[in-house]
Amino acid sequence: MLLKHRSTRIVLSVIAMLLFMTPGLAFAAGAAAPVEITAWWVWVLGLFVFTFFLGIVAVVAGVGGGVLYVPIVSSFFPFHIDFVRGTGLFVALAGALSAGSPLLRKGLANLKLALSMSLIGSMSSIAGALVGLALPENVIQLSLGLTILGITVIMFLAKNSAYPQIGQPDALSRVLQIYGIYYDEHLKKDVDWQIHRTPVGLVLFTLIGFMAGMFGLGAGWANVPVFNLVLGAPLRVSVATSVFVLSINDTAAAWVYLHKGAVLPLIAVPSVAGMMLGTKIGAKLLTKVHTNVVRRVVIGLLAVAGLRALLKGFGI
């Protein structure tokens, strides 16, 4: 218990450090000639350290790195939001690719469920990315702010269901052979599952893909509730399959950003490396901290970032 309190304090200190770091960086970013007074490597090193801590916090709070990365980095670093969104996609993509293999091997992520939803989701994420890169900056900031505030509300209110009960699988899911069985470590037994409302799921994944592509956000915040609460997949299967869907949809949108020149390796690689290192440390801390406390603080942090994007959109 004492250890848990101590670990929680450490993670909360990390969040405080993030907040402490960002106004300083923001001040430098807002200076008249930031690039002349701050060497490039300071920003790059700062970005690596920042994303490292962000990775720890993201895992402990149970939110995706991409959804924290874009609003916070676009608010407090001098990079244009085009490059931040392109990098956000690579941050989410690298994390999803790394996590995908073990989740598939364990049978938690389901290939058929993922492929059924990702085909339409990836096409809409390409459309979202094209629209996002064509819109004026203030419109992007405004809609990003609204989206992030919406996500904070979803995160705050959403109640997941570990083992949803389904009456009858729908006809489409039967045709698509979407059902499965996995070993549940908590129950210590095999759990059979199937889904319903597949057509509704397809419509929702079209919308989610569009938003993920438009803002460069990972879409775990939306994928998981749709898999779990709408389609009725068990929570563990929903989380694991969501990661897998991310790896496909983010790949599609990432190509748009690559072709439009909205990916700079100078920014993207330290972000990916920092976030991956941070998530590994975060995973080790996961059992030692009060995740609910950290989650509430992170939701608050996200709300501040969303509000800031909204104000930027209004030119304030």
Binding site: G100, R105, A109, Y182, Y183
Partner: peptide, 20 residues
């Protein structure tokens, strides 16, 4: 108490292997 059983089919395992 049941021992852990892996339920991934061979297509998933092939995908996981190349992905990893």
């Amino acid at each position: 108490m049941k021992q852990e059983t892996i339920h991934a089919d061979k297509v998933q395992l092939a995908y996981a292997s190349i992905l990893g």
